[in-house]
Each structure stands twice: as structure tokens, then as C-alpha cells.
Nucleic acid binder design. Structure first.
Lengths: 348, 348
DNA sequence: CAATTTTTGGCAAACGGTTGCAGCAACCTT
DNA sequence: AAGGTTGCTGCAACCGTTTGCCAAAAATTG
């Protein structure tokens, strides 16, 4: 009895947060019982459990996640690595992961790898133990390194297909043919691909898909770049594309495309009258830029959600075996105003 | 000697990550010495220290952050709470915090409070112990609650001034006068404030500043709304503003302003010929929307960085006393193309 | 009603570090 | 050369949980 009363006597602010031991003494049981009552409810008598739960509530008990992690090895935290927090594309990913993680009662550790494979690798190791698994949005790691890491810890990669590592793939390449078809139907015959960074996995995929589609439609495609996937790299890209004499281009991503739009406006080039532009991703802003961008809409946020689901599924031993290794998310072409009929043959 | 050799004999993959004990035996010292060598270098002989450091390196030792947190109470993690991960404004905050935290070797815990004070409060408590301090970007808490919390844990609030809680304040109200002056100089005499959510602290500040500025310039200001600070609330806002007969408006934030822009274009209303619009914040997209938005540019990213610096300063007992309680960041008006001369008096 | 099984709850040992205290050299004093 | 410092290292307790193992109590069985 006495301990229970003690617990209630401490009416002054309990400055130090209540521990499991406090809950235990307050309800007159051992800490082991209290622990079980709260986390493994079936292992303890319903009456005692209720008593303990009440005490916990009254003391405003919050389990110490570090102590818990130390013994159980589970942190209920997921690391999300993005290569550049600056890029709106990742915001959508983060939104998706955040949503899904919160719903599952997990916590999100956000890490910016600054497009550096070393930093990515380093962080993953330094933080190992701080998270149960990681989501790699746009990994810069080599296939080899990625496989090794995937063997060491639960990973899900986004937009990166490597043997042995779970991934969710946004099928932009699959949409490229549709995009090219759109341009061809508008009369374009000479089309450029505005390349993103060469270390970017999706960049290569998009280019290859475009080459294939070009063969299919029998039109010429060429590649310019590489450019950094940022808005301000769009100026250089615009100039190069303009100089190349093509009538239309597909940009690695919307950021680049929007940058081009701004530069072209500055130079007095009309989009789409003089040049048609197709972006990729459909990020925030693609709908209200000037002109609104025709783009390959990607379910970015959904990709984040799916990645979390896959990761969580494989963390749970119950569902681990059934967990999917790969998910492919389709894209679709969203036609807005940055594409139009090819300009009439210009007189020599 | 034997332990040392043992350490080297384990050539096969050390599946289990090396612990401090491993490092200690490998270098023939007690764990306490190893601990000191790695974290409190001066407390141990330089020769032993080097031996230990080498062993740690060879074993690829990574301190377990949870074990460390358990005794030291320090987690080297900062929680960043935003009210809506969906809002580009917070992206910039997150960028700033991320940068600064990484530079200081801290880890960022990202939490979305979904504009709910309860969730905010709840998360802060649930995660207490998982972080050393928190940054509240746009807290929805009452002053009372916020003060209480600030007494319980190190906090820095962004855009929220409450007695007893450290804060970094983006002085948008201070820029409002400049914005109004700009509109007045263009001939506008009847101006609306497009209100954001009433629970938003900055929203009230902006409105009050506008009222004051209105008196100063002797022009009529009125308030419409409240509207949700989202792009798609802009349609409703645009209609209301249009209906109110004003010639110019200042919107709570750029998101709302951009939404209005889209709606007005749809309705065939010309900006700025028929209506001038000023936004607040200068978020991603404000420069390339159509027309580009005149807005009160806020150093959002910097706000994130400063908030981190302030928080870190007060975590360090060395600098805690000298740490600033408040920082004010100035804003400035960026004139683009959404503002222009007031339309000539329309014939009745 | 004794013997056996099932519940229920406690003891104590982890988990991987940090840190106060104490021991022990080796160095200075005088 | 004895006593006093100082510098370095080890011992062991502790942080707050979880969990394997065991014992007491209760329920079941023959």
C-alpha cells in the first residue's frame, strides 16, 4: 500500500519524467510485470494490467525510447535519405513517407545526402542502430555497394532497380513513349533530351526509353547536357536546346524544364510556338508556371507511401516473407500548354 | 595479449557491430578508458588514446546512440515540428534546419502536426527523451501551453512571440507597410487583406500591421476570409476579393496568392491590370508563376538556420547563458509583375 | 485430495555506453 | 627519503527497458 500512497503524495511537479519503475511501485508490482502489462498484455492478469495502466496514465508515463531500443533492438524509426532537400520532388516523397510512417506510429529521420555517395554511405553507417530501416530516395550508391548495404539493413530504394534490393519504381520511362507520341502527333520530328546528372539512375532510364521510342516512331532524338537538375541550370539548358535547332524537347525533370521556361521567356522565345517542352514528374509549380508545363505525371507522394509500406512489411516478421520486392508505379502524360504544333519549316 | 589477437582472429564478417567493449579488449584497456579516449580525449594518455582510436577504426566502431543517450541524456537529435509538410514554406524551413543541424553533427526528426494543437502537444510529449530540443515552426499551441512546454524542454519557436519562449521572428508585419506603400504609390485606395487561418499567429500580426499602415497612408483596408493557406483555397479567395470591389489585395501567403492568380486567369481577370496582388513569403514558385508574384520576401531558410543556432546555443552549457532569446529577421518587398497601376475609375 | 498443468508475477541479467570514485605510478617538493 | 601532487587507468554503479528463467498460486485432472 505504502508505495501506492507515496506515488500520490508526490503532488509537486515530478520534474523527472516517470519511469517504468515508478509505475511499478505505484501499482505495487515489479517492473517486469509493469513492462509486460504495457507491451505484452496477454502475459498478465487483466486486473493487474488495468491497475498498471491506470497508474501509468496517472503518472503520465512515457516509455523511454532509447532504453527500449537498447534491449529490443527496435527503434520504431525510419531514416529517409534524399539527395537534396532543396528539390521539390523530394518534398513530395517526404510527404508520402511522413504520412504513412505517422499512421504506423513510426518516426521519421530526415537525412540530406547532398548528392554524395560517400555521405550517403557514411550516414547510413553512422546512424545504423538509430533506425530500423531506411528509404533511399535517389541513391547515388553503386549497385555493388547498394547490394551490400541492403544485406546489412532493411532498405527500400525509390527509383532504383538493383538486384537484391527492394524498390519502388516510378515508371517514367514507360511514359516516355507516350510523351514522344504526343510530340510526334504535333508534327515534331527532331527532338532533344535535356539530360540530368549522369550519376542519376532514372536519368539513364529516361534517355534509353526515349531512344527506343524514337526508333519506334522513326524520329531523330538527341541528347544535350548533362545539366544539374535545378531551376537555374535551365538557362544553360534552354540556350543549348535552342541552338541545337530541335523543335521540341523532353527534360529530365520539371525543375529543369521550368528553368528553361523562364530563360526562354527572357529571350523572347515563345513556348510552345517556337519550342515545345515536356517535363517529368509533375512537381509543385508545374501547373502554374508560364506556360503551364506538359509533363509526365508521377505519383511521387504515393511512391513514398508505398516505400514505407514495403519497408514496414519486411520489418514485421509476420509479413516479412510475403513482402513484395518491387513495386512499379505507372505515370501518365499530363498535357498542359508547353507543347504545341511544330513550327512551320523555317525558310532557309 | 590474447584478447588483442582474438580481436584480429575474427576475420569473418563481424555480423554484430563492434561495441565499446570490443574496442577496449582489442586495445587492452578497460571500457571506461576506451570511452574516455573517444569522447573526452584529454583525460587519457596520448599513446593509449591513439591505440584505442586505431582499434576503433579497425573494428569500424560506431557508438550506439541509444546507449549513449541513456546515460548522458543527450541524443544529438532535434525535433522539427511543422504544421503541414505539404506547404512549401516549411520546405524552406526544413532546408535551413537540416543544413545547420548537419553541420553541427545533429540529426533531424521531422514531425508533421497537421495543424492540430493536440497532435503537436502529444508528439512533443511522446517523443520527449528522443530529442534534446525542438523547433516549432508555426505552433498552434496556446500561449499558456507553449510557455509551460518551454519550461519543460528547450524550444525555439518560429514566427511566434510568447513570453518566456525563445523565438525567431520573420518580420513580415514590418514589411507590410512597405507593401502597402507600394500599392498606394500605384494609385490603389481600397485594399483587401486575404486572411489565412485565424489560429495562425502570423496571420493576425499581418492584419494588424496592415490596419496600422492603412491609417498611416489614409487608405481603406478591409479583411476577407479566413481561407485555408492552400493553393486551392485561392479560387474562393479570388472570387470574394473580386466581388468586394477592391483594386488590390495583400494575401496572407504566396500559396493563397498563387491560387488566386490561377483562378483569376481562369475567369479572364487580368493581373495586374484589373487587380493587383501582393503575396507574403516568396516561396518556391513565386518567381515563375503567371504573372510572377510581387511579394514580401522572407528569409525562410535563414529562419530555420537561426532557430537551430539559437537552440544549439542554449543546449551547450557554455553558451547557454549568453544565448539570445529572440531574433528578428527583416523582410523586403520584391516587386514582380502581379502589381500595377490602379485601374481607372470605372464608369458607374 | 494429491498430482499435474497452467497462470501469474518476481528476480536478475542483459543492452552499450558514461562517470564518480579510488588505486597506483611517477613526478615534485623540501 | 618521506610526504604531497599530479596524471592515468580500472572498478563498478547506473541509465530505463526487456526477457529468460523460476517459483508460487491457482486451476485442472484422475
Amino acid at each position: 500500500m505504502e508505495p501506492l500512497v507515496t506515488g500520490q503524495l508526490v503532488v509537486g511537479k515530478p520534474d523527472r519524467p516517470a519511469t517504468l519503475a515508478d509505475v511499478a511501485t505505484a501499482s505495487g508490482v515489479a517492473t517486469s510485470t509493469a513492462s509486460r502489462a504495457l507491451s505484452n498484455p496477454t502475459r498478465v492478469n487483466v486486473a493487474t494490467r488495468e491497475r498498471i495502466e491506470r497508474a501509468a496514465r496517472e503518472l503520465n508515463y512515457q516509455p523511454n525510447s532509447h532504453a527500449r531500443a537498447l534491449t529490443s533492438g527496435k527503434t520504431r524509426t525510419i531514416a529517409v535519405l534524399v539527395s537534396d532537400v532543396t528539390n521539390p520532388f523530394y518534398f513530395d516523397i517526404i510527404r508520402g513517407t511522413q504520412q504513412q510512417l505517422k499512421a504506423a506510429g513510426y518516426t521519421q529521420l530526415l537525412v540530406d545526402t547532398e548528392e554524395s555517395d560517400e555521405l550517403e554511405d557514411g550516414m547510413l553507417h553512422k546512424l545504423r542502430g538509430s533506425f530500423d530501416g531506411a528509404i533511399l530516395a535517389a541513391s547515388r550508391l553503386t549497385d555493388r555497394r547498394l547490394s551490400t548495404l541492403a544485406a546489412e539493413m532493411p532498405l527500400v530504394a525509390i527509383n532504383r532497380q538493383t538486384k537484391g534490393v527492394a524498390s519502388v519504381f516510378i515508371d517514367t520511362p514507360g511514359g516516355i513513349e507516350q510523351a514522344l507520341g504526343h510530340l510526334v502527333s504535333l508534327g515534331h520530328r527532331d527532338i532533344a533530351y535535356v539530360s540530368g546528372p549522369e550519376t542519376s539512375w532514372p536519368n539513364e532510364g529516361r534517355w534509353r526509353a526515349l531512344v527506343r521510342a524514337g526508333e519506334h516512331y522513326g524520329v531523330a532524338v538527341r541528347r544535350v547536357g548533362p545539366f544539374s537538375p535545378k531551376k537555374n541550370a535551365g538557362a544553360a539548358a534552354a540556350d543549348v536546346v535552342l541552338n541545337s535547332g530541335v523543335t521540341a524537347c523532353i527534360a529530365f525533370n520539371d525543375l529543369l524544364a521550368i528553368g528553361m521556361l523562364m530563360r526562354l521567356r527572357e529571350r523572347g522565345v515563345s513556348v510552345p510556338d517556337d519550342l515545345s517542352i515536356v517535363g517529368c514528374d509533375d512537381i509543385f509549380g508545374a501547373d502554374f508556371c508560364n506556360p503551364p508545363l506538359t509533363t509526365l505525371t508521377a505519383p511521387i507522394e504515393q511512391a513514398g507511401r508505398v516505400a514505407v509500406s514495403m519497408l514496414l512489411a519486411r520489418l514485421d516478421s509476420q509479413t516479412a516473407s510475403a513482402a513484395r520486392q518491387t513495386a512499379t508505379l505507372p505515370t501518365h502524360l499530363t498535357i498542359r500548354s508547353s507543347t504545341g504544333p511544330a513550327p512551320a519549316e523555317r525558310p532557309q
